[in-house]
């Protein structure tokens, strides 16, 4: 069998047979413990600075950010953004309960559909699972209420993110996923797809020169809901 062909060839190279049970048990316990390694110090900051670092890194990677005091203020921020971008007041929205609970009825000029992304979408509103300050990165795990296609197909991708979901390093975001997610199929924490997104799509394939908006969104806008009193800078509090 081809599986054994490969495994046996590996073992021949390593000059040993299959691993004995005690060694396998040791390796399994490493998998269970999934130890962390060096975590860069750059994101180990007090909460207000951590959120500020997240925003600074987002902007360095050509994304934009807006901060709103509470979830009820998100629809106005969406309307403002679409108007500022000269986009129609229409978008595809992730069918996420946090987004659905927002007071959209106060903004009758905004029209949206709760669904997956489509090829002709101009704008989308996604729910952010976590923000990673280290590099200004969004973690977007797939789920029925967080379709992957919304991250990819629209020209302008908007993401709502609670400040309390902003962490320092990648490892902290994975720890949060490990702790809170349960996959219906495997029973583990890993959903079908997890995207780490850092800024809008781009390419430097033409003469090594950066151009934004290759195949994915040309613009990425993050609306941060300041739900975490500890994360609000003194100037805003």
């Amino acid at each position: 069998m081809s599986r054994d062909t490969i495994l046996n060839s590996i073992r021949r190279g390593l000059k040993r047979g299959p691993l004995p049970a005690d060694q396998k048990a040791m390796l399994d316990s490493r998998l269970m413990a999934h130890p962390t390694h060096i975590i860069p110090a750059r994101s180990r900051l007090p909460r207000p600075q951590q959120v500020a670092l997240f925003i600074a890194n987002l902007e360095k990677e050509f994304a934009t950010a807006a901060r709103v005091p509470d979830a009820d203020s998100v629809p106005a921020a969406v309307a403002d953004y679409l108007a500022a971008q000269n986009l129609p007041a229409r978008f595809a929205m992730a069918p996420h309960p946090m987004l659905a609970a927002m007071p959209w009825d106060r903004f009758p000029m905004l029209s949206f559909e709760a669904r997956r992304g489509q090829g002709s979408d101009q704008a989308s509103l996604q729910h952010g699972f976590a923000g990673i300050a280290e590099t200004g990165t969004l973690m977007l795990p797939s789920a029925p209420e967080r379709p992957t296609s919304l991250n990819l197909l629209p020209d302008a991708a908007m993401v709502v993110l609670r400040a309390s979901d902003i962490v320092g390093a990648y490892e902290e975001a994975w720890a949060k996923l490990r702790a809170t997610n349960q996959d219906a199929l495997t029973g583990g924490f890993m959903p079908r797809n997890v995207m780490l997104v850092t800024g809008p799509s781009r390419s430097a394939d033409i003469e090594q020169t950066l151009e934004l908006g290759a195949h994915g969104p040309r613009n990425l806008h993050v609306i941060i809901v300041d739900d975490d009193p500890a994360a609000i800078p003194d100037a805003l509090a």
Binding site: E61, T135, L196, T198, P200, S201, G216
Partner: peptide
Amino acid sequence: DLSVYTTF
């Protein structure tokens, strides 16, 4: 610092 899309 990181590519735009790192997908699992």
